[in-house]
Amino acid sequence: MNPIKRHLIAGLAGVAVLAAGSASVSAETWKYAFEEALTDVQGVYAQKFKEEIEANSDHEIQLFPFGTLGESADIMEQAQAGILQFVDQSPGFTGALIPEAQVFFVPYLLPAESEQLGDFFRNSKAINEMFPELYAAQGLELLTMFPEGEVVMNTKEAVAGPADLNEVKFRVMTNPLLVESYKAFGATPTPLPWGEVYGGLQTNIIQGQENPMFWVESTKMYEVTDHITFAGHNNFTTAVMANKEFYDGLSDEDRKVIDDAAKVAFEHILEYQNGLTEKSVAKIKEAKPEMNIVELTEEQRAPFKAAAAEVEAKFIEMTGDSGQKILDQMKQDLEAATQ
């Protein structure tokens, strides 16, 4: 081989080594924490998000299910501080941080179960244009919001109306509007971290809690309660966020990979939830045949719906003009989605 050609090949090899080294330096491991187990809805979403990121970039995603990094408040603090790059947290826990996010807890605003619910979350101006600014003000990039399923009341005694919740200590998330909701429903709302709920029900410190059906089944809340009531009052919503400084500092290419992964995982989780409530009901009935599972009639729901007006007024009182605009836009978005 002549010297010139040998020198050229050596040079090209050196460039290749430098390029490989550069690629390895740019590849990063990103941390993502969420509020549920890997096999629950948030965990299934997170795994799909991870799969898409790793298939379309050199980056890796490290997942942290509930409890591995503390309670919900802990992972939010870590996300805001940049210790975590991604976090999935319900607006129920961000109510004090972003008061307008409590709109998702106005009873009977969202359809409990609806084919149009996916269209609402996909196309809502409130979710896709208004909420990102509110999250950005708290150092968070809102990637997506998605529903997790109809919320049920899980209690020691049967519930057929607000009178049955009188003096019932009902666990709620640390969310001011959710507290107001259960006050309006006649209960004694009791904010508790999730880690204390099973023991609280077992020892009768509390006598009820609410969550989607899959969560009641997976966390075995049915073991320490006797009644599950579908009142149709809400659908559990969650939000996936990135630390904003981290997100804004990425290349256009990396931001696109993240945005695309969030969209693919969104469609995946909606499909995953088809029939999930029914599967959870079947599992609970198999594990505890005597469990009383009822769906309230429209007549039974009427007094709960009447109380919802009081809660909506409280939401406006808490959030002012900003909350009113969010609420009005959400109502328009919901109407468009159900046409």
Rank of each mutant, 00 (worst) to 15 (best):
S72T: 14
S72E: 15
A73E: 15
D74A: 14
D74H: 11
D74E: 12
I75V: 14
I75K: 10
M76A: 01
M76E: 06
M76R: 12
M76L: 15
E77A: 15
E77L: 13
E77S: 12
Q78Y: 06
Q78D: 05
A79F: 00
Q80C: 01
A81K: 12
A81R: 12
A81E: 14
A81Y: 01
G82C: 07
G82S: 07
G82V: 12
I83N: 14
I83R: 13
L84Q: 05
L84W: 07
Q85D: 14
F86K: 09
V87I: 03
D88A: 13
D88G: 12
Q89R: 13
S90H: 05
S90C: 02
S90I: 06
P91M: 08
P91H: 08
P91I: 11
G92L: 07
G92E: 08
T94A: 13
T94K: 02
T94F: 02
G95I: 08
G95H: 09
A96Q: 13
A96V: 14
A96C: 00
L97W: 10
I98C: 06
I98R: 04
P99C: 11
P99H: 09
P99L: 10
E100P: 03
A101E: 10
Q102I: 01
Q102E: 13
Q102M: 13
F104R: 00
F105H: 12
P107K: 06
Y108K: 05
Y108N: 04
Y108T: 03
L109M: 12
P111W: 08
P111T: 09
A112C: 04
A112L: 00
A112G: 13
S114Q: 06
S114P: 03
S114R: 02
E115P: 11
E115M: 09
L117N: 07
L117C: 07
G118F: 09
G118Y: 10
F120K: 08
F121G: 09
N123C: 05
N123F: 12
N123K: 15
S124Y: 11
K125E: 14
A126H: 07
A126D: 03
A126I: 06
I127Y: 04
I127K: 00
N128C: 09
E129N: 10
M130D: 09
M130V: 05
F131S: 04
F131E: 05
F131D: 05
F131Q: 11
P132N: 10
E133T: 11
L134G: 01
L134N: 01
Y135M: 08
A136M: 07
A136V: 06
A136D: 09
A136Y: 04
A137F: 04
A137L: 02
Q138E: 15
G139Q: 05
G139L: 04
L140S: 05
L140Q: 12
